[in-house]
Write a protein that binds this DNA or RNA. Structure first.
Lengths: 338, 338
DNA sequence: GAAACTCGGGTAATCGATTACCCGCCGACC
DNA sequence: GGTCGGCGGGTAATCGATTACCCGAGTTTC
């Protein structure tokens, strides 16, 4: 490596200033100079050093993104959406995974800040433990939380209205005739986990139906399978299961059917997210769709407005999701009377 | 932002040289100075500017990784493995997706080179179209191909022995009694696609069994479903289908069963990769397991040895995969006689 | 007692691109 | 003819961290 603008300038027989101006076009040069510089740059295979440029300009043209894990299809979908959103703006994405560990998350934020990203988009893995690192980062650089968020509402956020989404799901299964319901989600370490459970409890309480104790584990297929097993082992199945995400729902459907229960005839199951495999599930999964593209676009837009350590109140943009009814839930009360 | 080492030095009442030395410990300072600098740095919240350091040191402490897509679980698994491999070495990963587009891939390589990554790990999306960009990058910086590779063998590579893997799969279904076989894979734009097909054809030809024309589409669940449909539509099912990856296999199993065929009684199906959902498939998928951790470790190790524009011959490290027999394939010839 | 050496500290060069600032030239205008 | 303005080009400062090099004080050695 190592052909610099000095080399180009020398080869073209001009000063570095002229070379820089010819290449960037930010000030006029004679056609003669432009031509000589262009040729020299091409011949030498000159490629500007982004590190030097970043130091001079105090801006790197990058934004950092930290998600809990790239194994989860929801996060890969949202990462892709953000990437797509960013692609014509000339900034590119430094992607990191926190692996659901607040310590790793804090380290990742640290190195992204050290690399002087121009902004940060983060889905904090832990509603409590992520607080100091996120707040500290937000003090140094524009930061937007996407999907998950920390407690306290001190940092900007774009996401889905979790409570509204779950309410949609509960109302739907109730309309299908369900008289007893249960929530299968994740332990309450993230905002999503908490809000989806609380939304479920509120909606179910309002309807006055029987509510079984929630099953809380991980946002994974494996946990969905396990949760289904526990329901079967308990002897009596509820009329409907509302799940914290699609992976849990897919696992749950699979183990319920494996255990002999019919979905949706015996049990309705509704997921949350509607990314990736929900539609390829067997039978196709009824779920609450997160408007991922819209969320990503909103997050990028908001990031452009946020300033570091902004004294104005944080914004919280909650997009209302919609329900997508497929075949794991009953449509009317007819089926439940059996 | 913006507390520099000059600010720290001033606050501590020493020169920048002393401040730098105190913080890095690369030369001795009096305990007195060390103490004052440490306190000043802590009070000001000093965080060294990695951009400036990178410019000075001519090394960024980062390596770039380019994969065709992060939606494919195989690539996310391998990314995670590389990340894990790198984590204690102090270098971190700049992850990019080429979205299976050689042009995007070339652009990504360009920006990674401009950012002066210390090395590159890439899985080139197209065996032909990716050639110039990959070779050009390899000239500027240490580069290792992982999994997929470009034709011509000019750049270092770590991956699995595709032909051996497929041979394992073919021999397995033949041992199960299959007399007619077909390959369901991807169009031949990648090395993996080509080698898996050619391995299949060679192994099948050697055995002298009937070989149906291959079904070539994408490495996706959707294509697997479609391929299954086409087999059903053709009227007569082969005894076994060997698939280019697990996603195809899972989709294929689903649509075969949906169409009334029994797996493995009527048709054996074998996948390739063994990441993610293969074990959660219904029934669990027989497949060829890629030793992802080992591949990642080998790639990182090799990257440490490679030099840019190295004149020595490129290394090609092909790790032999193993077959994992689960429940989509018949074990003995007994089942086929029906 | 002087030369040699060690030790800790400071000054300024360095990495590469950009650009503020200055300079010289040419044509226009009064 | 002199002055002014504009235009194109060059020199050097700048961004922040590191470190080569130098310096002075204290210590050792013959």
């Amino acid at each position: 490596m190592g052909v610099t603008i000095h080399d180009v300038a020398r080869a073209a027989g001009v000063s570095v200033a002229s070379a820089s101006r010819a290449l960037s076009g930010r000030r006029k040069v004679t056609p003669e100079v432009a031509e000589r510089v262009a040729r020299a740059a091409a011949e030498l295979g000159y490629q500007p050093n982004a590190v030097a440029k970043a130091l001079r300009d105090q801006t790197t043209g990058t934004i950092g993104m930290v998600v809990p894990g790239i194994g989860n299809p929801f996060f890969t979908t949202i990462v892709e959406a953000v990437e797509r959103e960013l692609q014509n703006s000339g900034t590119d994405l430094l992607l990191c995974s926190s692996r659901y560990d607040p310590q790793v998350e804090a380290r990742r934020l640290g190195t992204l800040l050290a690399r002087r990203v121009d902004g940060l988009i983060i889905s904090p893995c832990d509603i409590e433990a992520s607080v100091p690192a996120v707040l500290d980062a937000a003090r140094r650089v524009p930061l937007v939380q996407l999907d998950r968020h920390i407690e306290g509402g001190a940092a900007d956020w774009v996401g889905v209205d979790d409570e509204a989404g779950v309410t949609l799901a509960v109302d739907h299964v109730l309309a299908g005739g369900a008289r007893s319901v249960v929530f299968a989600g994740s332990r309450l370490v993230s905002s999503s986990a908490r809000l989806r459970l609380s939304g479920f409890e509120r909606a179910a309480a309002r309807a006055g139906v029987e509510v079984l104790p929630p099953l809380l584990g991980e946002f994974t297929l494996e946990w969905g399978v396990e949760a289904g097993r526990r329901l079967l082992d308990a002897g009596r199945l509820p009329d409907a299961v509302v799940c914290g995400n699609d992976e849990i729902a897919v696992g749950l459907v699979r183990s319920l059917r494996f255990g002999g229960a019919r979905v949706p005839e015996d049990v309705s199951v509704v997921g949350f997210d509607d990314v990736g495999h929900a539609t390829m599930c067997d039978p196709p999964l009824s779920t609450v769709r997160q408007p991922v593209e819209e969320m990503a676009a909103e997050a990028v837009r908001l990031l452009g407005q946020v300033k570091a350590a902004d004294p104005r109140p944080a914004q919280r943009i909650a997009i209302t999701p919609r329900l997508v009814v497929r075949q794991t839930s009953r449509l009317s009360a007819a089926g439940v009377a059996e």
